[in-house]
């Protein structure tokens, strides 16, 4: 792995309108190149805003974001971004849309990639975009994005309107792209389970802030699910969430030292980890910087 960052943010914030609320604030994280990163968080958490900032389509209100070692605007040629609503020209046909992609990206375009993705979906090249289903539009949008051979691929809720079969196929296609070209892929979703096996890096956003950032393996290894007697004292470990049922205490903790051997412990799943943090907005932000240093 090289030391380059695909995306690096420092004190990043975005406010819409002068009196509007902050969509994103105090975001600091570093995404190393070559990762497949899940951007996870509830609706309205700021996921789309973050992706739009990385794509260079919005300017930050405060702080800074750099993409592939430069400002987002200068990296645009090497970045592909598929917005949530998959903006395409409805009056163009599939073939015309691909030709547009080729004409707009003359230096980088790989027509065979685009063609294969479209063909795999049994799309008629003559069909107008406006006659396609949501899933078919996603396929065309991904064909445009991948044929550009991007170094960084930003996908906002890419799988939302795909059926389970198409979802699996498209995810397989994205993973193949990552395996073959080392493309950094960043995709947002509020369905964690959907991303668990495909992503190796996590960016958890809640309330406009980065709640958790780092390699998924390391984040999971840093947390333990504990079952203990109700009177157990969890200090000095950092408690993300704890619940008492009858005589039993059940908690997700970030151990600061060895845990009491009488407690039953297990490794949380990614979904459990994410849900615990989201249910507890006041739980301390994870040691993002520390995790990152060890990861690089």
């Amino acid at each position: 792995m090289t030391g380059t960052a695909a995306i690096e943010a420092a004190a990043l914030g975005k406010r819409f309108g002068r009196r509007g609320g902050w969509a994103l604030r105090d975001c600091a994280f570093r995404l190393p190149a070559g990762r497949v990163c899940a951007v996870v968080g509830p609706n309205g958490a700021g996921k789309s805003t973050l992706l739009t900032l990385a794509a260079g389509l919005l300017a930050p209100t405060e702080g800074a974001i750099s993409v592939l070692g430069t400002v987002p605007g200068a990296a645009r040629e090497r970045v592909a971004y598929v917005a949530q609503d998959k903006p395409l020209y409805p009056q163009l046909s599939v073939a015309e849309t691909l030709r547009m992609g080729a004409d707009l990206n003359t230096d980088r375009w790989d027509a065979s990639v685009a063609q294969r993705i479209v063909d795999d979906g049994d799309l008629n090249p003559k069909s107008r975009i406006r006659t396609l289903s949501g899933g078919q539009c996603t396929r065309v949008a991904l064909a445009l994005a991948l044929a550009k051979r991007p170094e960084l691929l930003l996908l906002d809720e890419p799988m939302a309107d795909l059926d389970p079969l198409a979802r699996h196929e498209m995810m397989g296609l994205l993973m193949a792209q990552a395996a073959e070209s080392g493309t950094t892929i960043v995709m947002s979703s509020h369905v964690v389970a959907e991303l668990e096996d495909s992503c190796d890096h996590l960016l958890l956003i809640g309330g406009g802030r980065v709640r958790l950032a780092g390699e998924i393996d390391e984040l999971l290894a840093a947390h333990v699910h504990v079952s203990a007697p109700a009177h157990a004292v969890l200090a000095p470990h950092t408690v993300v969430e704890s619940r008492t049922t009858g005589r039993q205490l059940s908690a997700l903790v970030r151990p600061s030292s060895t845990l009491d051997t009488d407690w039953r412990t297990s490794t949380p799943s990614l979904e459990e980890l994410v849900l615990s943090y989201l249910r507890n907005p006041e739980a301390g932000a994870a040691p993002a910087a520390k995790t990152e240093e060890t990861a690089v």
């Binding site: 995810m171 193949a176 990552a178 395996a179 073959e180 096996d197 495909s198």
Partner: peptide, 17 residues
């Protein structure tokens, strides 16, 4: 199978393979 072949069929992360 190559990592690419496995991940295309299973949609898992290449690093896992």
């Amino acid at each position: 199978p190559t990592a690419r072949e496995v991940v295309e069929a299973t949609a898992i992360n290449p690093n896992t393979v």
